[in-house]
Structure formats: C-alpha cells, structure tokens
Design a protein around this nucleic acid. Structure first.
Lengths: 175, 175
DNA sequence: GCCGAACAGTTTAGGCTTCAACTATCCGCG
DNA sequence: CGCGGATAGTTGAAGCCTAAACTGTTCGGC
C-alpha cells in the first residue's frame, strides 16, 4: 500500500497561474458531472448488454441495428444506418454480415445506385426483434423505476441541454 | 425471468395524473430517457476519445487507468484497478501491459501476496498524465459550458438518483 | 499438516469499434 | 464524351471489452 506520494507533476498544473480567469480552479464540478454521467450510462448499458446476452444471445449493437430497421418501417442503406447509429461505416459492414448470417436481415443491391445496398428485416428478424424489444422496454422501465415521473422529466430536459452544449463545443472544434 | 408487468404504476408515479397520452403499460418515456442518456454520454465520450487521440496519441481507457493511479496517490493492484474502473480483470491485464510497454507505469509483484502485483506511475507516466489531465479538464469544462451552474447541479443530483435506481434494479436481478 | 474454497491474474475466443487505405460507382461539368 | 471529385461500401490493423477456462497462491478449518 505504501508508496511515496509523488507531488512532482501533480500539483500546480492548473490553478497556479491562470491569469484572472473567472473560476481559477473551477472546472472540477464539470469533471465530476461528466464522470457521473459516464458512470451512470455505463452501468445501465452494461446491464442491458448482460441481459440481452443472457435472454437472447445477442448484443446491443445487433439489437440497435434491428431497432433502426424496425423504426424505419422498411429498408435502409448501410450508409443511412451508420449515420443513424452514429457509428463508422466499416462497423456496419461487419454487423450487417453477422445479422445476415443469422437470417435476421436481408441485403439487396440497389438498382438505382449500384454502390448502395438495401437492408431490411426478414420475417424471422421481425419476430426476434419484437420479442427482444418488449423485454428491453421492461428492463428500462425497471431500471428507472426508482425515479418519480417529474424527476425523469427533469432529467430528460437537462440531458437535452447537456447534449446541446456538447454539440456546440463540437461544432466549434471542427470550425 | 422477466418481472411481473405491474408494480411500476403502483409506486404512485404514473397513475396520479397521466394525461392519457400513453397506453396502460406505457414505458415509452423511460425508453426515451434512456436513449437520450445514452446518446449524450456517447456523444461526449466520442469527442473526448477523438481529442485524446489527436492531442496525445492515447485512448480513454489508458487515460482512465493513469487517472486511477494518480488519484490513489500511490500503487494499486491490478484487481483494485479493475474494480475501480468497473471493467473485467482480463481487460486490465492487456491495458497494463501496453502502458508498461510505453514506460508510463511500473509493475512489481507483491511480496506479501505473491499472486498480486502492484502498479504505479513512472516519472514519465506522471508527466504525461499531468499534461493530459489538464487538457481533459479544459475539454470537459468547454463541453458543459452551455449549462448554467444550477443546471449542472440539478443534473448531477438527478444522475445520482438514476444511478441509485439502476443499482437497485441490478441488485434485485442478482438476488 | 492438509485440503478445499476463495482469490489474483492470465489466456483465449469472439465481438465491437475506429481509422485509413482501397475499390467501385456515380455525377457534374467542360 | 470523358475526367475528376464525391460517395457507398469493404478491408485490414490495432485496440478495447467480456465471459469462461485456466494457473498459481493464500488461507481457514479440520
């Protein structure tokens, strides 16, 4: 357990010489907020992954992809799916391949644009997703059952604000 | 395996004054809340990953492990790190190996318990983490800059409630 | 003293994810 | 027409992550 406390580089990194900033040492709150947001999301996500695996031998990305097709109500191109899931292109290639191998989705090359491929649920895929989706909704409800409705509403609203704030920072970064 | 479908409405959350916009077992609100929580966390996490890579050629898990060692102020065993980071054991094996190969951490077999290994920052590791940590804190502050202080406080509190609720659901699941 | 349970860490197999380089196709414009 | 830039998707390398099986060590009880 014992180790010499270092104190070489650890102190004096930030708060030593900030020239008249508004909050000289004031970014710790944001950090704690972020760590808690991350921990909460990871906790829930991990549990959902475990249950998807235990109950249906599937994974969250697979479930997500089926959900996108279900929500779209028809076929989507791989590119459109990757945009909606906010993941890379190459990611969808492998994911779609696995789902196709399981017989849950079908692929067809677009006739209008021979670069593109349409993906859609098979009947089996629809059945599977239907079962998974119902269970998933129950799990989520269970996980958030400890919050009162007004707490959930407030959290929902604040998350929108946080997302908005983050997107602003992202845009600024790219600019 | 699935819980009885009731019991949520009986907690006095929904039935008080639902403006009949939903089905009897309408868990859609919780689902939307979860999707937004996940999207927000993923958005920010992705941006942090990109910046860590661009600015320091490193990754979030590496940074996290260094942060754990820094926060502990000394050496930690691999098992203790895996508990604090809430990831699996085998995960830390590889992560620690990569950080050791980069000269950022040092390993030593415990003398008291020859199964265990102590991990601690090297001087180089301390220097690196110090630089990364300062930038990281700035990024997070920037990302949450769009929220007023009272919004951040409210969000912080509600996330604690959500985490608590999720943990209760988890515990019930294992029981 | 010994045995079995618990524990620390490693390994393996499989999956997810990104980035970057690549192929094939499309489309606008000269 | 034909060329060059954009676009759709694939591939490969690298890393992250888990669950499960495994090795070696410790420790409590008999």
């Amino acid at each position: 357990m014992t180790a010499p406390p270092d104190d070489l580089a650890t102190r004096g990194t930030v708060d030593a010489e900030t020239p008249l900033a508004h909050h000289p040492a004031g970014h710790k709150d944001e950090l704690r907020l972020w760590l808690r947001l991350l921990a909460t999301a990871n906790l829930i996500e991990g549990e959902v992954r475990r249950r998807l695996r235990a109950a249906f031998h599937t994974t969250l990305p697979r479930f997500d992809l089926l959900a996108q097709l279900h929500r779209a109500g028809g076929a989507l191109t791989l590119g459109e799916i990757s945009r909606r899931m906010m993941v890379s292109n190459g990611n969808i290639t492998g994911l779609a391949a696995r789902l196709e191998a399981e017989g849950l989705v079908e692929r067809r090359v677009s006739e209008a644009d021979r670069r593109a491929q349409w993906l859609r649920l098979t009947p089996k895929g629809r059945r599977e997703f239907s079962r998974q989706s119902a269970a998933h909704e129950e799990w989520i409800a269970e996980i958030f059952a400890g919050l009162a409705e007004e707490e959930r509403a407030a959290l929902f609203r604040l998350l929108a604000r946080a997302k908005q704030s983050a997107q602003a920072a992202l845009a600024e970064d790219t600019a």
